Amino acid sequence: MELTLNNGITMPALGLGVFQSPPEETTAAVEAALATGYRHIDTAAAYGNEREVGEGIRRSGLPRDDVFIETKVWVSDYGYDETLHAWEKAVGKLGVERLDLLILHQPAPGVFDKTIAAYKALEALLADGRVRSIGVSNFMPHHLERLLAETDVVPAVNQIELHPYFTQPDVQAADAASGILTQAWSPIGGITFYPGWGEERKNVMQDATIAGIAGAHGKTPAQVMLRWHLQEGRSAIPKSVNPKRIAENFDVFDFELTADDLARIDDLDTGVRNGPDPDQMRTERFAMVIPEA
Results as ranks from 00 to 15, higher is better:
20 Q>C: 03
133 S>N: 09
215 G>Q: 09
84 L>D: 00
212 G>V: 13
276 P>C: 07
183 Q>Y: 07
137 S>G: 04
75 V>G: 04
30 V>N: 02
87 W>R: 11
25 E>A: 13
93 K>L: 11
51 R>A: 14
165 Y>G: 03
254 D>E: 08
125 L>S: 07
187 P>E: 06
193 F>G: 14
154 V>N: 07
196 G>E: 01
21 S>P: 15
188 I>D: 00
244 K>F: 14
160 I>E: 06
213 I>L: 05
182 T>F: 10
101 L>H: 08
16 L>C: 12
190 G>W: 11
97 E>T: 15
270 T>G: 09
203 N>F: 06
127 A>T: 14
99 L>T: 03
182 T>V: 13
143 H>T: 08
242 N>Y: 06
192 T>D: 05
30 V>A: 02
275 G>W: 09
178 S>N: 13
279 D>A: 14
230 L>Q: 10
254 D>M: 01
40 H>G: 11
122 L>P: 00
98 R>N: 08
54 G>Q: 04
266 D>P: 10
46 A>E: 06
1 M>I: 15
183 Q>W: 05
207 D>C: 07
178 S>C: 15
223 Q>L: 09
223 Q>M: 09
131 V>E: 07
120 K>C: 15
229 H>I: 09
241 V>T: 15
268 L>H: 08
141 P>L: 05
90 A>E: 07
210 I>F: 10
204 V>W: 03
68 F>S: 01
4 T>R: 11
102 L>R: 01
248 E>N: 05
60 S>G: 01
232 E>L: 15
89 K>D: 06
205 M>Q: 11
240 S>A: 10
282 R>Q: 11
251 D>K: 12
25 E>V: 06
70 E>S: 13
100 D>V: 07
15 G>Q: 08
270 T>E: 08
267 D>W: 11
146 R>L: 12
206 Q>E: 12
137 S>V: 00
128 D>N: 09
114 K>H: 14
128 D>S: 00
55 E>Y: 12
92 G>M: 04
289 V>M: 10
9 I>S: 06
69 I>Y: 02
57 I>K: 10
287 A>Y: 07
30 V>Y: 03
4 T>G: 03
106 Q>C: 11
15 G>N: 10
216 A>S: 14
136 V>F: 00
107 P>C: 04
46 A>F: 12
10 T>E: 00
282 R>K: 13
224 V>D: 02
82 E>R: 04
165 Y>M: 01
157 V>G: 08
282 R>V: 15
288 M>Y: 14
139 F>A: 10
153 V>I: 15
125 L>N: 05
226 L>I: 12
287 A>L: 01
107 P>N: 00
107 P>M: 01
196 G>H: 03
108 A>K: 03
252 V>M: 04
92 G>S: 02
34 L>G: 11
90 A>Y: 01
141 P>E: 09
116 I>L: 14
208 A>N: 10
135 G>W: 02
118 A>S: 14
66 D>P: 15
225 M>P: 03
88 E>T: 15
